[in-house]
């Protein structure tokens, strides 16, 4: 169970998150949509303290902190209960695919190397990159790199995996394989919080879609309701624009 209450983040004079309340059940798949610059990525980055929030209460499993009073230990604990998938993959360039996946297990969780590697190879199999175990990021395609990025997040066995626009930097030809892997994780009921512009993914996979604008949650609900009968005019306006740009997923 993950919960944020009244989360606030400011950059200088700009209030990027203006009191976000959100609860995520175990096994729930939530997709966050909304215009650019509305704080979707910042929301994810506040959950693991890559950005330091200015106010709010954060609950991650048995960790429950007032974000303004979070100690170094609280921050480490929050990061160990979450895993992050970056838009630009952010793989460790000096490490192979397998090493990228097991790095956290060995260094952070202090697993013995053999055990970590066994788990790493199991993850490589699940992300379909068994043959790339010893390949360095520079020799992998964008899609393969992002699958390793997701594999690294899977290894952490976190309460929730946070996906920050995981397909936005990919050439179109690689988007499908990354979405397919995310669908596979969703089918295994991995708790996920996904920021994406892939409306098809939101419609097909999400349990709940959250629409954000101006640092606030405007509307949320199951995809059938949010896409077919949005209540708020801002949601309707946004969906009309993006669905016009992605005609393939218009309701048939």
């Amino acid at each position: 169970m993950i919960q944020v209450a009244n989360l606030v983040k400011r950059f200088g004079d700009a209030t990027v998150l203006d009191g976000i309340d959100l609860a995520i059940d175990q096994g729930e798949i939530i997709v966050v949509i909304g215009p650019s610059g509305t704080g979707k990525s910042t929301l994810l980055r506040c959950l693991n303290f890559l950005e330091r929030p200015d106010a709010g209460q954060l609950t991650l499993g048995d960790l429950d902190v007032d974000v303004t009073r979070a100690t170094r230990a609280d921050i480490l604990a929050a990061r160990r209960r979450t895993a992050f998938v970056f838009q630009n993959y952010a793989l460790f360039a000096n490490k192979t695919a397998l090493q990228n996946i097991v790095e956290g297990l060995i260094v952070v969780n202090r697993w013995p190397k053999a055990k970590a590697h066994a788990r790493g190879r199991e993850i490589l199999r699940r992300i379909g990159l068994t043959d790339k175990a010893d390949a360095y990021p520079a020799s992998l395609s964008g899609g393969q790199q992002q699958r390793v990025g997701i594999g690294r997040a899977m290894a952490a066995q976190a309460e929730v995996i946070l996906f920050d626009e995981p397909t936005s930097s990919l050439d179109p030809e690689w988007v499908e394989e990354v979405l397919a892997l995310m669908k596979q994780l969703a089918a295994e009921r991995q708790t996920m919080l996904v920021v994406t512009h892939e409306m098809g993914f939101a419609r097909d996979v999400a349990d709940r879609v959250v629409f954000m604008e101006g640092g606030r949650i405007v509307e949320q609900g199951p995809p059938s309701q949010l896409f077919n009968a949005p209540r708020d005019p801002r949601t309707r306006d946004f969906l009309r624009k993006v669905l016009a740009a992605q005609p393939a997923i218009q309701p048939s």
Partner: peptide
């Protein structure tokens, strides 16, 4: 060194020293 790798390392719970 690419700043995003620093964030990735922090996101998996590494300390600054690690």
């Amino acid at each position: 060194v690419d700043r995003s790798q620093t964030e990735a390392a922090l996101s998996i719970g590494m300390t600054n020293g690690q």
